[in-house]
Amino acid sequence: MNPARLARFHDCPRYFICPLCHAELNLAGTSLRCPNRHTFDIAKQGYVNLAPAAKQSQFYSKESFANRGRILNAGYYSHIASAVLAAVRTHCPANPRPAVLDAGCGEGFYARAVQQANPQADVLAFDISKDSVQQAAREDTSLAVRWFVGNLADLPLRDAAVDCILDVFSPVHYGEFGRVLRPGGIVVKVVPGARHDEQLRELASAHLRHTDYSNEQMVDQFARHFDVLDTRLVSQTFAMPPDDVRAFAHMTPLLFNVDIDALDLGQIHELTVEAQVLVGRNRADSTCAQQHGVAHVVAHEGEVEA
């Protein structure tokens, strides 16, 4: 294996614990191993599977992530990426070597952007989808991000290990976030705006349970768990060629339970990509209070997205 693909895990005791017994993990050859001999091999792409029993959703296939990659690389989410980078730059606690966790990283678009903008940072990124993490690690030319398959409800990370968590269009586990964040650390959470995908939502209205969308519940839940430092709405409407409209339609969770072939996508010539970027600071007592408390998981139709 390329030594550079292994090098990113040389200090894994700084961050990682065994997902089975929660003991410290160490690099042993081409694997991560705990004192109880639980062993997790580093794949040739440069990631490690720390949730080997996890099952991937049928909606998140290699084709789905290929469509996501196409849309992201075409620049349709660049304004959101810029807002995320600005939030990290402005609010991440001062640390010569900040640790940033991308929770639900998908194909790695935001994790790679943060690492490129902050070469001194330790960027860790995980997803429950093995296919997405494989793609992310394969496309990481920097060989710097620590990619892993992980379980949001039981993160294989030490207590108070990270300074910043990115949660971009993903579910959130407030108990685990509070546990792995250092006191004073921040969460940058991105949720869809009210106009996000509005053209597709209107086209598919007859097939959806809800024809309008509100992120108010998610925003309120976030504010109950973190001290909100900033909130910003970013929105842009793009002219979009038919092939990109189709790729977007096959990517968005909005249409996961809709027969896309039954939709006349030819009616769509532009799409609005809108998000609200929330920044919250971990409360001083949240690590201890949430470590053994009730875990809160919030998910929403359309929240898990590119």
Rank of each mutant, 00 (worst) to 15 (best):
Q120V: 01
D102I: 03
Q120D: 11
S61I: 15
H91D: 12
A81S: 09
N95M: 12
V84F: 10
A83Q: 04
S64M: 13
F59M: 08
Y77N: 01
D102N: 10
A74F: 03
K62F: 10
V100W: 06
N95H: 15
Q116H: 11
S61G: 14
E107A: 11
A87Q: 05
H79T: 01
S78H: 14
F65Y: 14
S78C: 09
V88N: 04
R97L: 02
C105E: 01
T90R: 03
D102T: 05
Y76R: 08
G104V: 07
Q58F: 11
A103N: 12
P96H: 08
A113L: 08
L72W: 05
K62P: 08
A117M: 01
T90E: 15
T90V: 02
H79Y: 01
N118E: 12
A81V: 06
A111L: 02
N118F: 15
Q58H: 15
F109R: 10
G104E: 03
D102R: 05
Q116Y: 07
C92I: 08
G104Y: 05
E63D: 13
S78V: 12
L101G: 03
F109G: 06
R97S: 11
A117W: 00
S78R: 14
E63F: 10
V100Y: 12
S82P: 02
Q115L: 09
E63Y: 10
F109N: 07
R68S: 10
S78F: 06
H79E: 00
N73S: 11
A103P: 11
Q116F: 05
R112H: 13
N73C: 07
R97G: 08
R97K: 12
V88A: 08
A111T: 03
Q115T: 06
Y76Q: 02
A81E: 08
P96S: 11
L72N: 13
Y76T: 11
R89E: 15
Q120Y: 04
S82A: 15
S57H: 12
G108S: 05
V100S: 07
R112G: 09
H91W: 15
E63C: 06
L101P: 04
A103D: 10
Y76V: 02
N67T: 13
D102Q: 04
F109E: 09
F65D: 09
S57C: 05
Y110T: 04
S82G: 12
A86P: 07
G106D: 01
N95R: 15
N95I: 06
A111M: 03
N118D: 12
N67G: 04
N118Q: 14
G75K: 00
I71R: 04
H91G: 01
S78N: 13
S64T: 13
D102Y: 07
R89I: 06
A99Y: 00
E63G: 09
G106S: 07
S78Q: 14
A113K: 09
L72S: 14
V100H: 05
S64Q: 10
I71T: 09
S57P: 03
H91Y: 15
A99H: 02
V84E: 06
Y77V: 01
L72C: 14
A99I: 02
